[in-house]
């Protein structure tokens, strides 16, 4: 069946079997391999994408559910070659090791600070608790998200001034 949606700002129309999982659609059909698969039971968040701005698990979505929606993947983070604050934060704070959870973590982090620009450490830990990282122990992921929040805040102040 045909499904039409927006991904990283570009409209796409694809022909898929209804049973196609969104993660597979993105990885195989669209060739964007930054969205990963870490489990079969919707527990790990390696497959996280933003659906109309909210983080969801793309392994637990059927392709036809995307009809008319907006999807953001890790490939959509850097706009016009400029890194998103969340990407800068992850690099600066050593928020990644093997990088497998990183796309999901960054997307969750970005959505989190958009909804709550000044999160506490508890709020960050709670917010990323649907995503597993096997490498970092989360300490630096928390810092990375704080880093991005601070950078956004600084930019907003600069914009006002």
């Amino acid at each position: 069946m045909k499904v039409t949606f927006e991904i990283n700002g570009a409209e796409k129309s694809v022909d898929v079997e209804p049973r196609t999982l969104v993660v597979d659609l993105i990885r195989t059909k669209l060739g964007m391999t930054g969205t990963h698969i870490g489990c079969d039971t919707s527990n790990c968040g390696a497959c996280t994408v933003l659906l109309d701005g909210r983080p969801v698990k793309s392994c637990t979505l059927l392709a036809p559910m995307l009809e008319g929606k907006k999807v953001t993947t890790v490939e959509g983070l850097a706009a016009g070659g400029k890194l998103d604050a969340i990407q800068v934060g992850f690099h600066a704070e050593h928020g990644l090791q093997c990088g497998f959870c990183t796309p999901g973590m960054m997307l969750v982090g970005k959505a989190l600070i958009e909804a709550n620009p000044h999160p506490t450490e508890d709020e960050i830990r709670w917010g990323i608790s649907g995503n597993i990282c096997r490498c970092t122990g989360y300490m630096n992921i928390v810092k990375a998200i704080q880093h991005a929040a601070a950078a956004n805040a600084a930019e907003n102040t600069a914009g006002v001034a």
Binding site: G45, L51, P55, V56, K57, L61, V108, S129, G130
Partner: peptide, 12 residues
């Protein structure tokens, strides 16, 4: 509500 599954599942 906040104790159900995890933040991503709760979005769906």
């Amino acid at each position: 509500a906040p104790l159900i599954s995890d933040p991503l599942i709760r979005n769906m």
